[in-house]
Design a binder for these strands. Sequence first.
DNA 1: TAGATTGTTAATCGATTAACAATC
DNA 2: TAGATTGTTAATCGATTAACAATC
Lengths: 231, 231
Amino acid sequence: MDRIDRIKGTFGATKKVKKIPPSGAAVARLPRYFRVLSHLIDAKVLRISSEELGEMMGLTASQVRQDLRHFGDFGQQGYGYQVKFLYQKIGELLGVAEGYRAVLVGDSPLQEVLLASGIYRETGIHCVLRLTAREEAPQPNAPLPTFPWSARESALAERPADLAVLCAPSGVAREVAHALVSLGVRAIFNCTGVPLTGLPASVVTFDFAPEEPLLRLLYHLTQDTQTKDLP
Amino acid sequence: MDRIDRIKGTFGATKKVKKIPPSGAAVARLPRYFRVLSHLIDAKVLRISSEELGEMMGLTASQVRQDLRHFGDFGQQGYGYQVKFLYQKIGELLGVAEGYRAVLVGDSPLQEVLLASGIYRETGIHCVLRLTAREEAPQPNAPLPTFPWSARESALAERPADLAVLCAPSGVAREVAHALVSLGVRAIFNCTGVPLTGLPASVVTFDFAPEEPLLRLLYHLTQDTQTKDLP
DNA sequence: TAGATTGTTAATCGATTAACAATC
DNA sequence: TAGATTGTTAATCGATTAACAATC
């Protein structure tokens, strides 16, 4: 922090920050850097070199330095990277510090699992509201204020959300997604298993799809077996 | 199927199948092709062109054709790709047809959610055994035979598993993973949140990490906001 | 200062795109 | 046959690697 300031003071603001394209591949790796750094903090590691960090991520030291260089000037020559500082900077890049607000839609067990998992704390997301399919009286004093879907309009008016974590049944997934967007939601974490089509291009969606890493696992098992069998 | 056979008959076996490197990027996309094709089957789509498939996946038609070409000869000129045939072939590549056997370790709610989600059916994985932390009498006649962790050795001897879905508490994650590997497990789907280090290189691991797509979501929200604010 | 490690450049490699010939 | 769409090649683009100078 004071390091960056010194550089700014010496050379003028942002002079050293590369204006090179934020490189798709590097961006895609940021969440994993963030996760690895979080574990390093837990392990009380204060300092890490591009060499070590690369090894933990399955990347070369060169690649780590190139990646980080795209986003700023985070290292110290002859020393490496301060774990906490880097973690914080990457968090800022990702938007962890922005205090985004989420509405949790649907009351599947997955919704509970995610809520209990700590990912909302880790990602800096504030869960502000829950909408359920059950037509019960609103429970605005529950740990997380809960309203039935029919009250979505007033509920979201009072507690606007940037993003939705969508666990609706697959039959109504698209319909619910469109309704949320029309109420101001700009991003959807889609846990319905159904691809969300027809949304405005400005709406960001990402799918919760655990079958993908599982299938990659199978692919490697399959390749290993073939490799062992053949030679 | 008979198409491939005809080609084989005409030009000799595997002649047309490219021996080009299976291209990391293309391999990484296979699970998503598989998922999209599965939805097309549900929607009763019989035939699809590289153009349409590309649009659904956010790729160009060229890219789709290049991707698929790495793995075989799946299309028909002038026609496109038969959805079911392509789905089946990609499934074979991924190992869905191999009938891999999984041991489910730990009884967190996430384990239940995954079990109920249908991903094991979709990926062709047979769940053969469950190991729990609870020291109860074995329940070998439950829908999924369940044994306490202490009985792991005999349980896995009787029902060997290729892979483990690991939902152990974070404190013991590494220890449990090593024990499983020593009992013959060759791949681990790691849902513990803890990075698994020190395992033999031959063991494949993939992490269940929903915070990564969530963080990518935030990143895009953040970039959008900045883009809108600046110009 | 000497040692370490980043930042940065240039070279290599791989992946994507575009265009078109092959063929269903 | 004519139309459509793949398979395939070559050109472009982007990402990774390697090497070293800058600097802490």
